[in-house]
């Protein structure tokens, strides 16, 4: 984000700005002065305390519960890793995991391809680019509980696309994935890609606009064709965006919940369950709190494995995040 005012250039070079605590004023006597000196910490303290409790404290709580035999209500008797071993014996959990792998892989892959394609195509001095961008991205602004209402209808064999195409004179046309055990998960992919690929487009378009135009000119003068310039020079130069997009999509996939609830409800049966719906089911409907907690921790572990290396490299690399 850039400031419009040219006078806001940060001081260049000299040792002043680079030093932490550089704007710390002097201390003076008295209680008020002590408060003044620590104001910065005092201001951040409530938020930090809330995060400590509601994020890290609650993670600890969930970890603790997962080592108990809690059923409908939390119990605080530790019984070891029983819940975890139970979890990994539940067939439904394996379905959820397998679904997550299928769903996550396809969702991330297809979203990236469509997003990058749209970004590159939109970058060709397109008339009405603004309007198209708005159209591609609006699903991100809407809850999937809302748009899922339409998707459910579209995918419903009796009244949606299948019927529509049959009415056009193709009575044998079949598109009933949403009611079939082994294909229901693919309808999640269709809807999720629809929802998130515009976001990938926005990420890449912003990155494309940040690429140094001199490089493009140089490549063009060297005789490279436009596809070659994109494939060989532009896309490799925005590699970090692939990383960001992957991390965000992956963590969206792990957290996917609304989508399943609105579209398939996890059905038919539990054929399209994902870990998030599994956890909700176990915790709030089947009174298996310990197992629910264990499954939530599995989700957390997955997200941490994706996010922490990423955040670490981002925070360490640039000072900006």
């Amino acid at each position: 984000m850039t400031m419009q005012t040219p006078s806001l250039r940060p001081a260049a070079g000299e040792d002043a700005g680079a030093v932490p605590g550089s704007a710390t004023p002097q201390k003076a006597g008295g209680l008020r002065a002590v408060a003044q000196r620590h104001l910065s910490k005092l201001v951040v303290a409530p938020s930090f305390a809330a995060i400590l409790l509601f994020v890290y404290g609650f993670i600890a709580w969930t970890v603790y519960i997962s080592f108990t035999n809690s059923k409908m209500l939390p119990s605080y008797d530790l019984v070891g890793a029983e819940a975890f071993s139970k979890l990994w014996r539940i067939e439904r959990w394996y379905v959820a995991i397998e679904n997550l792998l299928i769903f996550g892989g396809l969702f991330i892959g297809i979203s990236l391809v469509i997003g990058i394609l749209l970004a590159v195509l939109l970058d060709q001095r397109i008339r009405g680019e603004g309007a198209l961008r708005t159209i591609y991205l609006y699903p991100m602004a809407l809850s999937f509980i809302v748009t899922g209402t339409a998707w459910k209808w579209i995918l419903n064999p009796g009244i949606g696309i299948q019927q529509f195409v049959r009415d056009l004179g193709f009575p044998a046309f079949t598109f009933d994935w949403i009611v079939q055990q082994d294909t229901a998960v693919y309808t999640l992919v269709i809807a999720a890609v629809w929802q998130s690929s515009g976001f990938v487009m926005a990420l890449f378009l912003a990155a494309l606009r940040g690429v140094d135009q001199e490089i493009i000119k140089a490549a063009y003068l060297d005789g490279a064709s436009l596809p070659r310039i994109y494939w060989g020079i532009v896309l490799p130069s925005i590699r970090p965006v692939f990383m960001s997009a992957f991390v965000i999509l992956a963590h969206l996939a792990v957290k996917s919940y609304d989508l399943v609830v609105a579209l398939t409800g996890g059905g038919p049966g539990y054929a399209s369950d994902l870990p998030a719906t599994f956890m909700y089911e176990m915790t709030f409907r089947r009174n298996q709190i310990a197992i629910g907690s264990a499954s939530a921790l599995m989700m957390l572990a997955t997200v941490v494995a994706i996010i922490v290396p990423y955040l670490y490299s981002e925070l360490k690399g640039g000072k900006r995040v």
């Binding site: 400031m3 005012t5 006078s7 806001l8 250039r9 001081a11 260049a12 004023p25 002097q26 003076a28």
Partner: peptide
């Protein structure tokens, strides 16, 4: 003036970036 707040030191400063309030 080691312990005196900047505003009470009776000094004024001109910055390289000017630091005018935009």
């Amino acid at each position: 003036v080691n312990e005196v707040h900047p505003k009470d030191r009776d000094i004024a400063m001109v910055f390289q970036s000017y630091a005018l309030y935009p």
